[in-house]
Design a protein around this nucleic acid. Structure first.
Lengths: 339, 339
DNA sequence: CTGAAAGCGCTTACAG
DNA sequence: CTGAAAGCGCTTACAG
């Protein structure tokens, strides 16, 4: 089959009997500015359409220095939270004429740094990152290069980079207070041993909220699972934890996956919810609606995180000089009960 | 803050006292080929490292005509199936030095066509697409342009485009036969009214497999929900369907989401699984492990779809001339039981 | 009112 | 053994 050749500005110019620069001006809506006659302008536009002209984006990028591509670096694109994030970002980017290249760090800082470098070399116009430990330096370099960056869901305390965060502290606080209001007295907390800010904030909030309401946090009430736990191991560990602490009447699971494992454990142990045990899960999508009713969910507004992040990025595009402005934006969490 | 300037090949050349072309040859490992002395070669390499040289990918692309970017067009990146697909494709692409730009069609053919055009204009080297109706023409154009394309999960009968498909027909067949073996006599089938090949195949397999085993498919046994059904409506409709057909002792749900709604319906109706009712779900991830045991799952090997697709794409990169070869590749489904 | 020229950063024949 | 030149397709001052 004969391959179609794509038409260039030159091809049009030749056919129209004008200079390439004239074609360029017309097609970029700068005909008036370049004082090109309406006759020439119309003729060129018509020809471009007839010949099926599509500008070569690579050439435009090289010339203008803008690729209109944004780099999205997340922990794992196949995870529901990040997938939802990616979708919202795609939608927002689409409206603004940007495309997204995505990469997953697998929570490996080393890989994350490499991805940043690769994307930088690919000349992306800006970065949207859910950073992992070890990426501080590389992100600093981005700033030094003048590349717009927005962090999502996490940030590095002390680093001056715009970030959209979930109000983890108040989310957990509201969840715990919800349980307290309902009359629960001994609330356990299950989390993972990641030392990411947002996880630490959740644990801190658990402890402080209990104290605030006159409870003394029981050391036995806190379970920290290894991040690398396989599902079976996690279910095993949570079951053992609940069995070993029969006096607890509620459990707060600090992440989506922990909540799922927790519910499996509870099912396995034959406990009832919310009769015997109340449960709060920190979550981002509605998987929990499929389970026993009566679970309290602290919902992360993923779409809002993504939208806010895009706004912060676009603001940076407008001001070449970094202005003083809100560096950290918090999106609020929503509490709801599964039915 | 002073912005860092990125270094170019010229900068290195000036500092090293050689020509830009020499630097280019050295840095592209063509020093031997260009018969450049080891001394010069080493000096240039060292300088490049010291100065933190990163080639400008846009310039390379313009010159070579290769962007090393692949376009991934799926129905909805936030959907678990496509998110998993995206992750595997990312992993494979990473190994091969490619980046992925993703786009969601929302199953809108018009939008899908626009996305193809946008990506073409962005000069992506190849396309990985889960096509929706209405994209045939635009995909044909891609072929005419000589752009490598692989379809995933779906295809257009009659169109000669490489595709990786799930063996839907045999998957459903195995699932139904599994139920028959277990002694179920009246098997219902719940699907959506999309006229995509893969969905039609599933329904056809349901009907033919029943006949094959001497059962007469009951007209009442087939429920086709509107694709646009909201969760509540779907649960409502499935509940009504099951109630209206009490003689059925098993239900096959043709998609992941239908399975979830189906289980909710069954829970709502107070029916027991697999005692009163056996269930088979067509699925791609392990959400069902969280439910009542005894559900049979026909699992779509997402990773395998993605890997095969990448292979088919890479084969096209090798042969500039389209060779005769396997156009359709089927990946096998796995049957397993939730515990 | 319009065209010729320079240049974005690179690679690749080609000349010496 | 190495450099000068052309060119990928575009845009943007600048000259007429």
């Amino acid at each position: 089959m004969a391959l179609m050749k794509s038409v260039s500005i030159k091809d049009i110019a030749k056919k129209a009997g004008v200079a390439p620069s004239t074609v360029s001006s017309v097609l970029n809506g700068k005909a008036k500015q370049a004082r090109i006659s309406d006759k020439v302008s119309e003729a060129v536009k018509l020809l471009a359409k007839e010949m099926g002209y599509q500008p070569n984006h690579t050439a435009v990028s090289l010339r203008t220095g803008k690729t209109h591509i944004l780099g999205l670096i997340v922990e794992d694109i196949s995870n529901a939270f990040f997938a939802k994030l990616a979708k919202t970002i795609e939608d927002e980017a689409y409206k603004l004429g940007y495309k997204i290249v995505y990469c997953s760090t697998e929570n490996d800082g080393e890989k994350g740094c490499e991805l940043i470098r690769m994307l930088l070399y690919r000349q992306v116009d800006g970065f949207l990152i859910t950073p992992s430990r070890g990426m501080e330096q590389e992100i600093d370099k981005l700033i030094a290069f003048g590349k717009p960056v927005v962090l999502m869901d996490r940030y590095f305390p002390g680093q001056q980079v715009p970030a959209t965060l979930v109000d983890n502290y108040n989310g957990v606080k509201q969840g715990i207070e919800h349980l307290i209001e309902k009359g629960y007295k001994k609330i356990a907390f299950v989390t993972v041993d990641l030392d990411q800010v947002q996880m630490l904030e959740r644990t801190r909030s658990y402890q402080e909220t209990l104290k605030l309401h006159g409870f003394t946090p029981d050391e036995n009430g806190l379970l920290q699972l290894p991040y690398t736990s396989k599902p079976e191991m996690a279910v095993e560990a949570i079951s053992a934890f609940i069995s070993a602490n029969p006096s607890f009447d509620a459990v707060f699971f600090a992440t989506n996956y922990l909540g799922i494992y927790g519910l499996e454990s509870i099912k396995k142990l034959g406990l009832s919810i919310p009769g015997h045990l109340a449960v709060v899960c920190f979550d981002d999508h509605d998987i929990f609606r499929l389970f026993t009713p009566g679970i309290t969910i602290v919902e992360q507004p993923v779409a809002s995180i993504a939208q806010t992040a895009m706004q912060l990025l676009m603001e940076q595009f407008k001001h070449t000089i970094q202005e003083e402005g809100p560096i950290l934006k918090h999106t609020r969490l929503i509490i709801r009960e599964s039915t």
